[in-house]
Design a protein around this nucleic acid. Structure first.
Length: 233
DNA sequence: AACCAGGACGTGA
DNA sequence: TCACGTCATGGT
């Protein structure tokens, strides 16, 4: 089912080409998000932190401001004052803690030859939790580590494939167990999940024209309610 | 005009 | 371990 859902989403939305990088135009529908240099990789790290519980649209504004001042750079970010970073990233919300987190990770990266590929190492850094760590490993370091987010749990719990409040680790293991351990597949699947959640599987779902509706509990629940209430009218 | 958005952390049970 | 409060802007 996990694999089947992947091919359905891929057929419906096409390849997403994540991670969205500003050099490609953040808003373009089809990205070519493979990082080519350290700046690209660091921009992914920055974006991953900025998008914590925040819409990507707001993150873009913050990234634009940082780019303007050439702060998407490990050394410059590490040297910048927290208050300055905070001012620039204001549109992405939680700007005080995110400014601190950005500076912290920048300073951590500064004393490393390359991006950490170890989950455990990233998780020790304050401000980097499981999802952010996996995003960095998968999209910046390009090592296979499946990213789980609120969308993943929402979509697949509605499909009846995972428990709504299953633990992060468990969901991650489920996906990694069902898929071949392939960076491109992991990248694409997560991106497709986000796309599908934005288009259809919102908190208040738009089941109309959703390609997964037939298999979805939420949808069947909804239609039975609708038909029941329409009978009452 | 509430509600939601690609979470993480600190705290007290 | 777990539930809960906190952090904050911008779009719908």
């Amino acid at each position: 089912m996990i694999e089947k859902t992947y091919s359905l989403l891929l057929k419906r939305y096409g390849g997403q080409g994540w991670w969205p990088l500003s050099k490609d135009g953040l808003k373009s529908k089809h990205h070519n998000g493979n990082p080519k240099n350290d700046k690209d990789r660091f921009e992914i790290v920055v974006g991953a932190i900025l998008t914590q519980n925040t819409s990507w649209n707001n993150v873009e504004k913050a990234l634009f401001n940082l780019n303007k001042e050439d702060l998407i750079d490990v050394k410059k970010m590490a040297a910048a004052k927290e208050s300055r970073i905070a001012e620039l990233i204001k549109p992405s919300g939680y700007y005080n803690q995110k400014a601190k987190r950005l500076k912290t990770i920048a300073m951590h990266l500064l004393r490393r030859p390359s991006l950490p590929e170890e989950r455990k190492e990233l998780l020790k850094v304050n401000g980097i939790g499981q999802e952010t760590a996996d995003s960095i490993i998968l999209y910046a370091a390009e090592k296979p580590s499946f990213v789980v987010d609120a969308y993943t749990k929402r979509i697949f719990s509605r499909l009846g494939l995972v428990d709504e409040n299953e633990k992060y680790e468990k969901v991650k293991e489920l996906f990694e167990g069902k898929l071949k351990k392939d960076v491109e597949t992991f990248k694409e699947y997560h991106a497709l999940i986000v796309e599908h959640a934005k288009k259809h599987c919102n908190k208040k779902p738009k089941c109309d024209k959703c390609i997964l509706a037939k298999k979805c509990r939420y949808h069947t629940l909804n239609t039975s309610r609708t038909s029941a209430s329409s009978i009452l009218k």
